[in-house]
Design a binder for these strands. Sequence first.
DNA 1: CTAGGGCCTTGCACTCAGTGCAAGCGATCC
DNA 2: GGATCGCTTGCACTGAGTGCAAGGCCCTAG
Lengths: 194, 194
Amino acid sequence: MTQARHPTRLETWRALREATLRLVAEHGFAAVSVDDVAAAAGTSRRTFFNYFPTKAAALFDPDPELAQRLERLTAEAPDTGDVWADLRGICAVFVRWGPHDALRVYRRVAGSGELGDYPVEVHRHVQAALEAWATRRLPGDELGPRLLAAAAGAALGAAFRTWDPASPAEEFARLADEALARVRVGPGRATEDT
Amino acid sequence: MTQARHPTRLETWRALREATLRLVAEHGFAAVSVDDVAAAAGTSRRTFFNYFPTKAAALFDPDPELAQRLERLTAEAPDTGDVWADLRGICAVFVRWGPHDALRVYRRVAGSGELGDYPVEVHRHVQAALEAWATRRLPGDELGPRLLAAAAGAALGAAFRTWDPASPAEEFARLADEALARVRVGPGRATEDT
DNA sequence: CTAGGGCCTTGCACTCAGTGCAAGCGATCC
DNA sequence: GGATCGCTTGCACTGAGTGCAAGGCCCTAG
């Protein structure tokens, strides 16, 4: 039989994330203390802070594996020449992975108004990855990459806020597609000679 | 001669905002405590929290007068039939008012990475006002108003982050114009029969 | 087998943000 | 003159977040 084994770093991370998600879904963000989460995950309060810098981070920080997949997705994305269309393609794929259980909790927390800053928190790392991708695609353009990533983030955010968390996850993806389709981001004057 | 007079509520508000802005500009957000701010504004710590729910709020909450002007701006905005164009018009005006001294501090704070959530904080109330306006313009459309406001906010945010706070404020307005011009938000399928 | 070094956990103590409560103070209204 | 209302303030408390140092587990070198 297998020896009692120390949990790996990722396992502890996931236990904390899991506990946070569950407790917050049950009681709301404010009503859950870090001590509660740590106890529920079978670690100490101090260890919690070794993994997450803030309580909110335990809710929103990207799962390392998911982050890696996103990294790969942007790295392998096609270049059709139309940056915005390619970006939409990336988003369309990404939006169908998401940890939808987490998304539902995010929506609940968002609706309760407990976290004024939730909308970005949720998408910050996604938007950062998109911006990095756009920067590779538009070297020399300062505004463009930020604008592209922000516009995509805005579309995803609007879809997210419109989504009814009680409805199937596919509905969120559909809303995101629609939102992305309604937005268009064109090249700047400086780069239209490309 | 005038009698010694109790400061009006707005005056106290402004004293606290002013003190926060100045101290944060000097020492950074984290290095300034609420006690410091309260003392600098000539009030008590407890009074600070009677005016602002959080330390960040003292930095970012909209000046009541400015909020009113924004309210009026959206109320009186023209309706040319092209929602996005009208929205761009509103933003173009707004972007030339801003308390640019505050904006410069925001950029500094933003650059230092102390406030992960700054970008929204800065624009939250603006975006909310734009969304309210868009909702009046597009009744019955759930996604549309959020998308319009978020897209405009994204453009403003991208311009803001690209702006060099050492350059004149007009440069920020120019960047905002450019960003807004590069983005286009179209009507949804459901509303294209309007 | 043992000694040591690295990584992770944990407890302790501390600062600071944010809140409820109740007392105080000035102005206003009968 | 007394009741009331709004604002301020002090006090005490919870909980987030951090630095520090001690202890435990594992792996490796001798």
